[in-house]
């Protein structure tokens, strides 16, 4: 089992959001989570990432045999968790290249692996940027500063390629992408993550990304818990009939 979320509850600013959510992902699987605005999808992602302010009030999360909730955010990353942000954050004055090299090497150190040299890192970064057709010059610019909405999402996928996680939780990575970028990002996710020892949790509102990244399971998150699960056909049904009809 890659990820086992059992009965997870939390509060944000003392407001209960997740209310006993359970979900299991096995290695090799891609799961999609859909659900109405405000249902708690980003809250689930942030809580799994360990964001301050997202207080767990009950339940357990096992990540690859480890107690995820006991780890600090950077330890979760080193253990193989990647969080693709719905709104990637701008970091003025810090270049993507410097940031990602330090982040990757911090992860490698934590895992007892040797750090990559500047040259080795650049080679890796070029390869992953190429995969996402992302301009290397943009990787030399400050993190997300002045990037368009779609560029930020594509940059997130370059980061994922470089960091090479076991489990990626991608929060609306498809929003803001143009038609070509959507295909490139979809193919990127498949290339990087569709492997027997990897897993993906895709949070999305639309079928369009799922046309490229076919999920093994689709779940509906509403009111802080999973209210319905099914195969890829569930996403089609949701798209044509809406949440109210399908998940009532």
């Amino acid at each position: 089992m890659m990820l086992n979320i059992h009965n997870l509850s939390n509060t944000v600013a003392s407001k209960p959001i997740l209310k006993g959510l359970s979900l299991t992902l096995n290695a090799g699987e891609i799961h999609a989570i859909m659900g109405p605005n405000g249902a708690g999808k980003s809250t689930l992602a942030y809580t799994l990432g360990g964001r301050p302010g997202y207080e767990v009030t009950g339940g357990t999360v096992d990540f690859d045999g480890q107690d995820l909730l006991a780890m600090a955010p950077h330890e979760r990353a080193a253990a193989g968790l990647f969080l693709g942000f719905q709104y990637p954050v701008e970091i003025p004055g810090v270049s993507n290249v410097q940031f990602l090299r330090e982040a990757l090497n911090a992860q490698r150190r934590a895992r007892g692996e040797a750090p990559l040299s500047g040259g080795e890192f650049l080679k890796l970064a070029k390869e992953k940027a190429g995969l996402l057709r992302f301009d290397m010059d943009m990787l030399k610019r400050p993190v997300n500063v002045g990037f368009s909405g779609g560029e930020k999402k594509r940059a997130e996928m370059v980061q994922m390629g470089i960091l090479d996680p076991k489990l990626a939780i991608l929060d609306e990575t498809d929003s803001g992408l143009d038609i070509d970028a959507l295909r490139i990002v979809g193919e990127g996710i498949n290339t990087i993550m569709r492997k027997p020892d990897r897993a993906v949790l895709l949070i999305t509102h639309y079928q369009r990304l799922l046309d490229y990244v076919t999920p093994d399971f689709v779940h509906v998150l509403a009111g802080g818990r999973i209210v319905k699960s099914g195969g890829p056909e569930l996403a089609h049904q949701l798209e044509s009939e809406g949440y109210e009809a399908v998940a009532a």
Partner: peptide
């Protein structure tokens, strides 16, 4: 948090 979530 963004930087930490990447492993720093």
């Amino acid at each position: 948090f963004y930087l930490e979530s990447r492993g720093l």
